[in-house]
Write a protein that binds this DNA or RNA. Structure first.
Length: 429
RNA sequence: GUGGGCGUAGCUCAGUAGGUAGAGCGCCAGGUUGUGGCCCUGGUGGUCGCGGGUUCAAGUCCCGUCGCUCACCCCA
């Protein structure tokens, strides 16, 4: 075998694609219920969009982007996340001019050049929601509530929501100083990584997994306790909204997201059913992003969640039933003389909206029956020259083994009737 | 970028003190001259990741390399 898929990428094979369709369909239907419309953007953008939007100092921009030059020497990047691209499209097409609030969702592949491990791939897939144009906590609640509802719809109970407020341009600078003040005495004892972050991004020190860092920052002041009036009000109102809608959460003052653009709300859904990479989804408010990208001063809030991780949780929790759609009918030819005629019957059934399959290998009747059995069809239609001459077929109920001669003209009707008699539409979805 | 584990049939794996490969499942065929699922019989299928070394002889020992996987970092 000469060619293999690239490290960190995965094929979604026919035997498992129904799982993806299930989580995607559930997401789309729910998004529609919340009146989010889908947005699709290109898989690549100008590198500068992500560098500016996500932040030069983040790990994503610093070492994880798939960046390349095209033949015109433009620097392009496979999107490592969606929000910057959505805002770019929002600004480019002046979506804010058409309506004051824009609600969009997406299901799309993302690319980050990290070392793969459980729940982490180089090409992975995210679902996401963005509410653009509102400063109000109701917008934050809309995002979080639907995400929680999505997990609930899939049957996931182990998804813990943690929320925090990371302040805004008014209260964060003062807090940052306060935090540095606190950390300074212990600076030499912090981990190397945290020491490096002391100047560039001290907030990140708080969510370090290093044990010593944990101890040393145990009593550190938190942003949520040092918010300005506006941010504090926003955070409190958001909590009220979540309580009102029955979304359970815990406040975790150490949640700091890996992207620079977040202001006020930051949150994560964590699952204990995952491995080391336990974040199911994460998001927050990004009121400064649009302006940072050179556009108008437009607020926004959003979420992005990993579909691979979602599927891992569903499988670990045994919530993924084998619900792939099976054909209802298999048509088997008893001899080669009747195959052409039988193929016509097959097409008739398909046009009558009955899912069916037939032999493409000119196999023996026995082999065709075996195939029908393997496909778990409910009925097998058997026909040879005898049936053909009478313009009828033999319909075999695969469960009971009973066989019935049925005129071709009545076939579709007969099948549909049998299906409804069984209280089963044959489309277990 | 760093560290651990693993790489033998499509899949899950076994493989003895080194003597040129096996099982189960799957797939195909037969056991019924037009009929499945169970059962029985037979069959298909492997450059033992790749390269080099030691040896009369290596899947089995040594070195290198590639890949997969888990973890660190970080995140979805």
């Amino acid at each position: 075998m000469k060619f293999k898929s690239i490290t960190g990428t995965k094929d979604i094979l026919p035997a498992e694609s129904f799982r993806w369709q299930y989580v995607e369909r559930t997401f789309r239907e729910l998004a529609h219920r919340y009146n989010f419309k889908e947005i699709r953007t290109p898989v690549f953008e100008q590198t500068e969009l992500f560098a500016r939007g996500i932040g030069e100092l983040t790990d994503i921009v610093g070492k994880e982007m798939y960046t390349f030059r095209d033949r015109s020497e433009n620097s392009l990047t496979l999107k490592p996340e969606m929000t910057a691209a959505v805002i770019r499209a929002y600004l480019q097409h002046n979506l804010g001019q058409q309506q004051p609030v824009t609600k969009v969702y997406y299901l799309a592949p993302m690319f980050r050049q990290e070392r793969p491990q459980k729940g982490r791939l180089r090409q992975f897939h995210q679902f996401g929601l963005e509410v653009i144009g509102s400063h109000q906590p109701e917008a934050d609640a809309e995002i979080i509530a639907m995400t929680a509802e999505y997990y609930k719809a899939l049957g996931i109970t182990q998804a813990d929501l943690k929320i925090n407020s990371v302040g805004c341009e008014k209260c964060r600078p003062a807090y940052k100083e306060k935090l540095k003040e606190f950390l300074r005495p212990n600076l030499p004892h912090l981990s190397e990584e945290s020491q490096r972050r002391f100047e560039s991004n001290p907030l990140r020190i708080l969510d370090s997994k290093d044990e010593r860092d944990r101890e040393l920052t145990d009593a550190a002041p938190l942003q949520k306790d040092n918010l300005c009036e506006e941010c504090n009000e926003h955070f409190i109102r958001l909590q009220e909204l979540l309580s009102e809608t029955g979304v359970s959460y815990t406040v975790d003052g150490r949640i700091v997201r890996g992207l620079d653009y977040y202001t006020k709300t930051a949150f994560e859904f964590i699952s204990s059913a995952l491995g080391s990479q336990d974040a199911l989804s994460g998001g927050g408010r990004y009121d400064l992003l649009a302006k940072e990208l050179g556009g108008k001063d437009v607020p926004g809030v959003g979420v992005a969640g990993g579909l691979e991780r979602l599927l891992l949780v569903l499988e670990a929790s045994d919530l993924m039933k084998d619900s792939d759609r099976k054909p209802v009918v298999y048509l088997a030819a008893a001899d080669n003389e009747s195959r052409t005629w039988l193929y016509g019957v097959t097409q008739q059934l398909r046009r009558a909206d009955i899912s069916c399959d037939t032999d493409l290998l000119r196999r023996s009747l026995k082999a065709q029956m075996r195939e029908a059995s393997r496909q778990l069809v409910q009925f097998t239609i058997i026909a040879g020259t005898g049936e053909r001459d009478r313009n009828e077929v033999t319909v075999k109920n695969m469960e009971t083994g009973e066989q019935q001669p049925i005129p071709v003209g009545d076939l579709a009707h007969y099948i549909n009737q049998q299906l409804s008699d069984n209280g089963n539409d044959g489309e277990k979805s």
